[in-house]
């Protein structure tokens, strides 16, 4: 168990920058989710930590050991692959024992450790099975057991649940979290699913085009996205593009006739994105008063979708915006309604 420090890590494939000056610290015993769309460099990052990708420049420290140029087999990382990568010609037991045999453990200790690992991942009794005789969820558990049994300094999970169906994914997500806390093992969890990242991680790192867009606690990254990409990636689906205006009192933009402040780096005429989430809007059929910290938009209900606990409405505003809004009551289509958004729920970039 150790703290992982990454400094200025860069990797280029031809013209493509897979990793672009990535700085990152993952505290000992914590679980960091690396989140990003496909092609954002998250797999390259985890493969660089495991030693399968040689970075162009930058350094990786595991504890106080510089492992940047260490051979992958000497790094003492343990990786769980998206495809599980269980060896099909070996039984569950042989798969798990592989790493232990390499460490020259005694047969008694190996047997004991296998038992411990299988109980840990809740798969006792399957020692003699072949991987092909297991379900996807079971295979993933074996892969996890195989990685954990060698006492790695850091656990690398590369989209471990993305090949499983939703129900098993939810369960395994919490089991992984529990195991990680139980063993207090420094863990990097790669995922493209923002909900998965937020629910499991102590800290979230959001990557785009090989760059760290934002790193912080799940709460921080969700409620204070640093730029429009982060906001949109974390589920803020309503994006309104407006123009920066200027008068004697300073820069501003107009949203539904209401004055909104804009970031300081804007100039008059620049485009401004105003972003908010569908479930952070209040919907009402009467026109409420706009106040200092509450903005009001008028619109017409255009379409609706039933989500079980609530409805999601598509609202068209007179300005021509199409917005998504969640509400827990049914409202007939074509109703005239009002959207109220509190100031702190509006992200303006």
């Amino acid at each position: 168990m150790a703290t992982l420090k990454i400094k200025g890590l860069t990797k280029t494939y031809g013209q493509l920058k897979a990793l672009d000056d990535v700085d990152l610290t993952i505290e000992e015993g914590s679980l960091a989710a690396v989140l990003g769309p496909s092609g954002s460099g998250k797999s390259t990052l985890v493969r660089a930590i495991a030693g399968f990708v040689v970075p162009d420049c930058g350094e990786i420290y595991l504890g106080d050991r510089n492992i940047t140029h260490e051979r992958p087999e000497r790094r003492n990382t343990a990786m769980v692959f998206q495809s599980y990568a269980l060896w099909p010609h070996m039984t569950v037991e042989q798969n798990i024992a592989f790493g232990l045999r390499l460490k020259k453990k005694s047969p008694e200790e190996i047997e004991e450790k296998i038992k411990w690992a299988l109980e840990l991942v809740d798969l006792p009794g399957l020692e003699k099975r072949l991987p092909t005789q297991l379900s996807g969820g079971q295979q993933q558990r074996v892969a996890l057991a195989r990685a954990l049994v060698v006492d790695p300094e850091i656990l690398l999970l590369d989209e471990p649940l993305s090949n499983l169906d939703a129900k098993i994914r939810y369960r395994l997500r919490f089991e992984i979290k529990k195991l990680q806390k139980l063993l207090n093992i420094t863990t990097i969890y790669i995922t493209h699913d923002q909900e998965e990242a937020l629910s499991i991680a102590d800290s979230v790192v959001l990557l785009k085009d090989g760059r760290v867009m934002q790193a912080g606690s799940p709460q921080d990254i969700y409620s204070r996205p640093r730029n429009s990409f982060v906001a949109e990636f974390l589920g803020a689906s309503n994006v309104i593009t407006a123009k920066t205006l200027e008068d004697e009192s300073g820069l501003y933009t107009l949203l539904g006739g209401t004055r909104l402040p804009v970031p300081d780096d804007k100039k008059e005429g620049d485009a401004v994105s105003v972003i908010f989430r569908a479930d952070e809007v209040e919907l009402s059929t009467e026109i409420p008063a706009g106040t200092e910290d509450r903005y009001v938009l008028r619109g017409t209900l255009h379409d609706q979708m039933y989500l079980g606990s609530r409805w999601r409405y598509e609202v068209l505003t007179p300005e021509g915006y199409s917005l998504l809004v969640d509400y827990d009551k049914s409202i007939p289509t074509h109703s005239e309604i009002c959207l109220c958004i509190s100031r702190e729920r509006l992200y303006i970039y």
Binding site: A50, F52, P72, E73, R74, N76, T77, A78, M79, F81, S83, A85, L86, W87, F98, G99, L102, K103, R146, A147, V150
Partner: peptide
């Protein structure tokens, strides 16, 4: 799949 080899290297195999 090369990933089967990588899994073994990752666990410390030459």
């Amino acid at each position: 799949p090369a990933v089967l080899e990588e899994a073994a290297i990752n666990l410390g195999a030459s």
